[in-house]
Design a protein around this nucleic acid. Structure first.
Lengths: 253, 253
DNA sequence: CGCGTGCCTTCCGTTGAGCGGAAGCGTGCT
DNA sequence: AGCACGCTTCCGCTCAACGGAAGGCACGCG
């Protein structure tokens, strides 16, 4: 493994930092443990990355991702482009419902969240921008999975369906039936399958060739919300956004 | 310059990619030009970064920032933490006004935009998330500059005030008077100083020690909006967010 | 106080990873 | 065909990278 690979490993060590928006940094020892590097090597490279601004060191000695890396990454077309298109529609949904609004894309066998809007009174949810959650237990995940090709579906079923709550669907047969229902009715519903107390409704975002490229969802309090009442709003926003995606990506091609 | 430094230079070459949300990638030749690297060296390292997922190569052969880098950077506390806190307040402002809502922080002598909400009917604005704009010509910039220490102020004045439109304040004396007015009234106004057709109102976000740590603004159509009517809403959101910032950062300390 | 633990920080002889000029390839244009 | 552009590959040379070991610092405990 060369230096570039080691730099990548170091940066990747920050990809899964627990805590509210990564507010807790990582010690040099922890970075090296995660990246699989000897301490002296890690110290050397982390020092360079810090000197270059990609990492920053807090007063408590821990390292965090630096603002310069964030600036670079803000130019990611994969995230920023779709986010840019989706934001007004998400704002509409938020304004109408005041529930959490989320946007996710399929990445390998996980749902990658690329945007999230929430208000002060919204039900607390576990997702953070940049987080990846299981496909089988989340609204957006079910949508992405339902319209994914069979390789992905087989992979998810074959890997075992982890129970996140007692309501999580863990039987592959039952999940397949659920996915068929998603395809039939055009949206997905989850009820406390990912987080107790939360339910969600999600709908697919399509491109000009009707491929599902993302999913948008509302996440609400299970005790007060009726997913079926939220579905029309989600579907409406999804359709409008799909038209925008189609137009925008046709312009880009 | 070692490998890590070269990797940093390569990543930095993506920091200023023109076009809507960086949708246009960079050729290997352009990357090497920007990073100051020989083609073969650049090719080698870009290949590794692409193999590691930090960069991605589009079908047209150009390179873009990859989703994995975006995921890592989404954990940046500098951006994500404040953004997370500010988002509900920005949503409130958007909901009330349906104008562009922006959040920026002072970075050296520029305003760095860390979040932006806009709707379909909002006036088109030039800022992108991750972009840096001049302090003297933007609402958030004036706020950040008004409350910055004198070193920053002197630096900005000394560097010359570029005219972005015919309304831009380019006279240091006049800008200093304007900044004094910002401090006196607690918010800043711009009228077509950055972009013809747009005006903005911005207010400071403060931490528990009353230091200004960010600025929040509305950007509206100059022909239809009255900045002074927008000011109370911006100030109200800024005050509420400041309280939240104070509480959250005290909890973190 | 001494000791142990955790988390660094520094050092430096060795060597193989990194280097990049040059040659070659592919594409598009005139 | 020739040219320009943007790569892509090759390979002998060399110095940047390596990382175990030693040492430093802060903290907690007996």
């Amino acid at each position: 493994m060369g230096v570039a690979g080691k730099v990548i490993a170091i940066l990747e060590s920050f990809a899964h930092v627990p805590g509210a928006a990564g507010s807790r940094g990582l010690t040099l020892t922890e970075i090296c443990r995660r990246a699989g590097l000897p301490l002296a090597t890690g110290h050397r490279l982390v020092g360079e990355l810090t000197g270059g601004g990609l990492l920053e060191r807090a007063p408590d000695g821990t390292y965090r991702v630096g603002i310069r890396l964030w600036r670079i990454a803000a130019q990611t077309p994969a995230a920023a482009g779709l986010r840019e298109l989706a934001l007004p529609y998400m704002e509409d949904l938020y304004e109408v419902t005041h529930e959490n609004v989320q946007l996710a894309v399929l990445r390998e066998d996980r749902a990658l969240y690329i945007e999230r809007l929430r208000g002060p009174r919204s039900v607390p949810i576990v997702t953070r921008v940049g987080a990846e959650l299981p496909l089988h237990a989340t609204g957006v995940g079910k949508v992405l999975l339902a319209f994914a090709d069979e390789v992905v579906q087989d992979k998810v079923m074959g890997a075992g369906l982890a129970a996140h709550t007692r309501h999580t669907i863990v039987d592959p047969g039952r999940l397949r039936a659920e996915l068929a229902e998603v395809r039939r009715q055009g949206y997905a519903v989850t009820r406390e399958e990912m987080t107790l107390g939360s339910c969600s409704v999600a709908a697919p975002i399509r491109d000009g060739r009707c491929r599902v490229v993302a999913a948008i969802s509302l996440v609400a309090r299970n005790s007060t919300a009726d997913p079926r009442r939220l579905a029309p709003a989600v579907l409406t926003a999804a359709r409008a956004l799909s038209r925008d995606v189609t137009a925008s990506w046709a312009r880009d091609a």
